[in-house]
Design a binder for these strands. Structure first.
Lengths: 351, 351
DNA sequence: CTGAAAGCGCTTACAG
DNA sequence: CTGAAAGCGCTTACAG
């Protein structure tokens, strides 16, 4: 005899009463509740989570599905979402997709089934089958980044934010503006809408200003400093070298800055560089960028998920959070226009 | 009727047989196993994890306890450990301690109890009570970083690694060498042995070379770029300004580099800077540092934990993994000695 | 190799 | 407010 039964015997009540007394449920006299709690504490009894999960059908757990835990952005999201989940006294189950094999396993083996009361998916662009599997989980799902039919979604306006960065470069007087994008990581985000929209925003801003576009001005690579290095190297060998470049992530931008400088060019004199994320180090790299509030997005997504868990019948949340253009030293007028005052309005620009 | 019973009925066998057939257990004829599997697939049946947990007492889950998910180091560890855990088809439960309140909750409320078959604790220096609680969990525990009585441990030789960096600076001819350490984060690592040993290694190297020490040469701050900025600012106002500084983490070192340069000083001419971690960006920051193989430590710790789960009676693993001094452009002889060849042996130095 | 039954540790109508 | 009993969905001796 141990567990809840031991407590019951010792406190002189039934198992049902112990169960009620130890939770927030009403229907137990204060005196009994107190006595049971004291007994439980004395015996060092803690309700077995497995038993209670089976009985209630609730896991008290939220699952978060991430491409990888190693990028700054996902670390922020995990921490932001985690803080909300912990505050609600829920557990956080972390699923890293990793490569395509890992992704396959999580979905095909239904590793999420029965393990969580809700699922948060980050930067996931699910296939038909994968969407279907998420739906069959029969728990609320919130997507961070990509809109997924039928699920809640928290995101930023990638199209508008990208256009806004590029307009900033255009306003400075740049006419040849390159784009370095995060390559569709086949394993994790094939056909990511987020990435497509960032590119579309860039295209739109150039088009509305009547500026030249071209494949040579666009490079894609993996979302790391090394990816940025490779991409900018290719970009700098374009027939007409751009005087400015918008880069899809700050981590890539850091690598790009390094290469540009090693090539004997200076930033922003020879090349203006703007990133996306407002990484913790962007400040010290003096990188102009878009703050997309990673931590806040993580919090908001977790909150939306908890609400959906509480009220499964409610409409799935659809949130578009604001971003902010953060201007630093890496962007300036092109050399030819140096001295001429730029047409820049303010230091920070909300959108 | 649904769940395992539906499969049993449909396949014309008992529930016990379904249970056996769907797992790796022997004692089922191949034909039956095949039929049951086919039926299960047809019905889209997946074994309920809650039921099987209660019946077996196994959670199929590993818990990882981290101070925070936002630093590069912990992200690497989480990912490295996660890859091993996933390969073993186990789930990963993430507990972020956050502040002292969060830490209290995890331990006092016994949030770990019954939730995992093993626990991995990162950079944790537990109090007596906390150790006791971990022990009472009655599952194997592996500590990454700090040695904890009775538990497995994976770590690096912080003392030796720190001494080795400082000797490198001494060999370059430096005589005034500062130390910037990670401040004991009261919430998370009070009295961390790891940090104490890094400092002790620094002290030892100075002592054996007969070089001056002093409180003014030591600064401590939080483990972020901003912490590094503040600490180096204080250091540079010491009565005798050091010509070199060893910094307890690369993230702090990045902040320090920024401040030093903004102060009009150059690295390494006016100040040599060495870090600790070999952060993904250390390369592009040209930072000399100690590669402590974060990812590998995470993998090794997870592997040790899985072994302990398989064989709870075995001796807890005690692993000390090698580190490597990585020399880059941020360290050089002091200005006075410029030109004079340094007494450096090789570019990389194992220990 | 297969099945009936007990049991894992809780929660929750139901009855009092 | 309290208790006896059924049930959550599996696994596993035990018997055949």
């Amino acid at each position: 005899m141990q567990g809840i039964e031991a407590v019951a015997r010792q406190a002189g009540v039934s198992v049902s009463t112990v169960s009620r007394a130890l939770r927030e449920v009403p229907g137990v006299s204060p005196a009994t509740r107190e006595r049971v709690r004291a007994t439980a504490a004395e015996l060092g009894f803690v309700t077995s989570i497995s038993g209670s999960r089976l009985a209630t059908g609730r896991t008290g757990t939220v699952a978060i599905v991430v491409p990888t835990a190693t990028t700054w952005f996902f670390g922020q999201i995990i921490a932001g979402a985690g803080s909300v989940v912990r505050a609600a006294a829920l557990d956080l189950l972390l699923f890293e997709l990793g490569d395509s094999e890992g992704r396959r396993r999580v979905f095909a083996d239904q590793r999420l089934r029965g393990r969580a009361d809700g699922v948060l998916v980050l930067s996931l662009n699910p296939s038909q089958d994968e969407s279907e599997m998420l739906r069959r989980l029969d728990v609320p799902v919130v997507s961070l980044g990509n809109v997924i039919e039928g699920f809640g979604c928290v995101r930023v306006d990638n199209y508008g934010s990208a256009a806004s960065v590029v307009r900033h470069l255009i306003n400075l007087g740049h006419e040849h503006i390159g784009y370095i994008g995060i390559a569709d990581h086949a394993a994790v985000t094939p056909g990511s809408r987020v990435l497509a929209e960032r590119l579309a925003g860039y295209e739109h801003a150039l088009k509305e200003a009547g500026l030249p576009q071209g494949q040579a001005l666009r490079q894609f690579d993996e979302n790391t400093a090394d990816g940025g290095r490779r991409a900018v190297t290719r970009l700098l060998s374009a027939p007409v070298m751009p005087t400015a470049v918008f880069i899809g992530s700050d981590e890539m931008a850091f690598g790009a800055l390094d290469i540009v400088r090693s090539a004997g060019l200076s930033v922003p004199e020879d090349l203006s560089v703007a990133g996306f994320d407002n990484h913790a180090f962007s400040d010290l790299m003096h990188l102009s960028t878009v703050d997309q509030g990673a931590w806040t997005q993580g919090e908001a997504a977790a909150r939306a998920l908890l609400e959906a868990i509480e009220d499964p019948q409610g409409e799935p949340a659809q949130l578009v959070l604001p971003t902010q253009l953060v201007l630093r030293g890496s962007t300036a007028p092109p050399r030819l226009l140096r001295g001429k005052p730029a047409a820049e309005p303010s230091e920070k620009e909300d959108r």
